[in-house]
């Protein structure tokens, strides 16, 4: 499909000035992933009710469980960051504070994803 904007509109840079629908779309994609992954997480955790330490460790060290746990924590922190960003943008009206908090939440989310992945790798490979 050709570009629907007229040349003047394009020259003025109308349309998305930032990320467009990127945020909205990733929120839905991570939500869809979490519908499946959070149910898996809940069932797995419920299954550990009477588990001692070696059993809990062995359960999470199973390849599919380790893979799904990293997928779950990654989607969870990603989705949390997107949601918190909207909350901050809705309620914080001081521009510098808003930017500061959004950036802080983004960095903490990335750190959490790395930390969770590293813990699962240690559980899966380190024992």
């Amino acid at each position: 499909m050709s570009d629907m904007r007229n040349p003047l509109g394009r020259a003025r840079g109308l349309g998305s000035a930032k990320a467009g629908t990127g945020h909205w779309w990733m929120q839905r994609l991570t939500a869809l992933a979490l519908v499946v992954l959070s149910v898996w997480f809940l069932i797995t955790v419920l299954g550990l009710l009477h588990a001692d330490y070696p059993t809990a460790l062995a359960t999470l060290a199973r390849p599919w469980n380790a893979v799904l746990m990293v997928a779950f924590t990654t989607a969870m922190f990603w989705h949390a960051q997107l949601g918190l960003q909207v909350v901050i943008e809705d309620y914080v009206h001081t521009r510098w504070l808003e930017t500061f908090l959004v950036v802080l939440v983004k960095l903490l989310a990335v750190l959490s994803v790395i930390a969770a992945a590293l813990a699962v790798v240690r559980i899966a490979l380190g024992h």
Binding site: F41, A56, L57, L60, M69, T73, M76, F77, A80, G83, L84, V87, S112, A115, A116, A119, V120, R122, I123, G126
Partner: peptide, 22 residues
Amino acid sequence: RATGIALVAGSGMVLWGLYALA
């Protein structure tokens, strides 16, 4: 929105649990 914010705190518990297990 409220449960979403509550679940952010819950995600900290997940991270803590994984670290304890590791």
